[in-house]
Amino acid sequence: MRASVVAPIQGLGSAVLSAVASVGTAGHLGVGALRALRKGDMWGPHILAQMARIGVHSLPIALFIATFTGIVLALQASYTFTGAIPLYFVGTLVGKTMVLELGPVLTGLALSGRVGANIAAELGTMRVTEQVDALETLAYDPIAYLVVPRVLAGAIMFPMVVLMANAVGIVAGWLTSLWLLDMSSPEFLKGLRLFFRSWDVWFSVIKSVTFGLTVTSVGCFFGLHTTGGAEGVGRSTTHSVVASSMIILVLDAFLAAVLL
């Protein structure tokens, strides 16, 4: 057969094979991480540092984003509602949008850049400088030692950050309504409470837990599978941010379809 016919088919084949292989490796990492959960002695001492890094240090950027999201939501809602819809619906829109969608998703996306990239770069550097191999030769399970504390910390701290971001975003929208839109507090609160269900908060928490798991485990995955020196670290970092952002958006749609 001619090369011009064979080459595209070969290309497709190798692309599919490598895709399947990377799903396999990711699954392997997942199973390994679940197994490594038992080795509490190995990840236990490190989880606090990771929680501080992922949760506490991410708080400023998350709250900054939430503040401006809240302001913009309030302003745009009032712009859209002029005349046709009562102004107290600004409260409804700010509350619902913040808690259900923008709080978790914007925080997730921001932290995929901040936390995910950081993890990918850190583990990538450890991989290319053979620190990961060194851990193995010193009888440390890299998954228990490196992956589990990060992923666990992500799953625990993401919801915390998102809860705070939700609250800050709503308060920002509230203050905007008071100062810029001539609304009163009772009006805003009436709208905020109108369609509020406590399930909304649970949904936000569930979303952020999955986003936390995603961002950290994708970061770990790309970090641990880095090859090719400093350039490889850069590549892993980029891939990690792109992949986790995409997964977050897909998960977002999926969870909305399944849980709402």
């Binding site: 606090l48 929680m51 501080a52 949760g55 506490v56 708080l59 625990i156 701290m157 919801p159 915390m160 950050v161 809860l163 705070m164 939700n166 609250a167 908060v201 928490v205």
Partner: peptide, 13 residues
């Protein structure tokens, strides 16, 4: 720091 963030987030929620 970690304790404070967790406590305040849960309280806020």
């Amino acid at each position: 720091g970690v304790g404070l963030v967790i406590l305040s987030a849960i309280a806020v929620g």
